[in-house]
Write a protein that binds this DNA or RNA. Structure first.
Length: 247
DNA sequence: AGCCTTTGACCAGCG
DNA sequence: TCGCTGGTCAAAGGC
């Protein structure tokens, strides 16, 4: 596993819709579920992502920028929960499809209800693999990327657990993939997930997050392909189930 | 009335 | 030191 710099995984050309906003806010639904719904409904309002395409937390948008190198504007969100400093960056295509979600920080609270998806913070369930799907890990500065392909969907989780810094930065990228990913030039260049990890961080994580401490407060994403494979079965199964259900 | 989104401006880091 | 870029702030407006 090599430590590759964090690459922004863009699925800009993604065709599958992900953010359904058909639902009332309160975003409690997991991303996967939303993705699915989005696919099914085909409706993606340009707004509401902060509340729907999330992991059960409430977010408030505090900024938007069109970053260079990215075709789509990047939105910045903060967790609205008191004293919770978690932030996340969301990149969306013009169609309202989420091309990338990056979380920063760790929630110090729980979601209003169990999340169906991969919440890098409280929900540690990050499946290593899903039935019929594939996964990969990518790390940078301790960041771990996981790619979970659910049929046409690709959900990535990037966890950058900075234990030493008392801060954990996790990123979850939810990416939709077209039936023919290769048709997207950018996916060819950016959509490359590779297993990588920071040794020291990996070990740290392995002894912390992956240990199911409380299981409820920290994301449990072990960097490194090995750690990845060693992910507790229950967790994987749990998420897999959740994802399956979502589907 | 309260919360959220929008959007331009401002600030800090980096080459 | 300057310019660029990413991230954040804050006012205004909408729901």
């Amino acid at each position: 596993a090599s430590c590759a710099p964090l690459q922004s995984y863009h699925a800009d050309s993604a065709v599958n819709p992900i953010t359904p906003l058909g639902e009332p806010t309160s975003g409690d639904d997991g991303v996967a579920q939303h993705l699915l719904e989005g696919n099914q409904k085909g409706a993606f309002p340009l707004m509401g992502i902060s509340k729907n395409a999330e992991d059960g937390y409430n977010w408030r948008k505090y900024g938007q920028k069109h970053v260079k190198g990215s075709e789509f504007p990047r939105s910045y969100y903060k967790c609205t929960y008191p004293d919770c400093l978690v932030k996340k960056k969301v990149e969306r295509s013009h169609d309202g499809q989420i091309t990338e979600i990056v979380y920063k920080g760790a929630h110090n609270h729980h979601t209003s209800r169990p999340s169906l998806l991969v919440s890098p913070f409280l929900q540690n369930e990050v499946p290593d693999s899903v039935d019929g799907g594939s996964s990969s890990v990518k790390a940078e500065d301790g960041a771990v990327w996981r790619s979970i392909q659910l049929g046409c969907k690709d959900i990535k989780v990037d966890a950058d657990w900075r234990v030493d810094g008392l801060e954990r930065t996790s990123s979850t990228s939810v990416v939709t993939k077209t039936s023919d990913p290769l048709s997207n030039p950018q996916e060819k260049t950016k959509g490359v997930l590779e297993s990588a990890g920071t040794p020291e961080l990996s070990s740290t994580l392995a002894s912390h997050d992956c240990d199911d401490e409380d299981g409820a407060t920290q994301g449990s994403i072990c960097p490194g392909g090995d750690a990845d494979d060693e992910e507790s079965e229950p967790k994987r199964r749990s998420l897999s189930l959740s994802l399956s259900l979502s589907v």
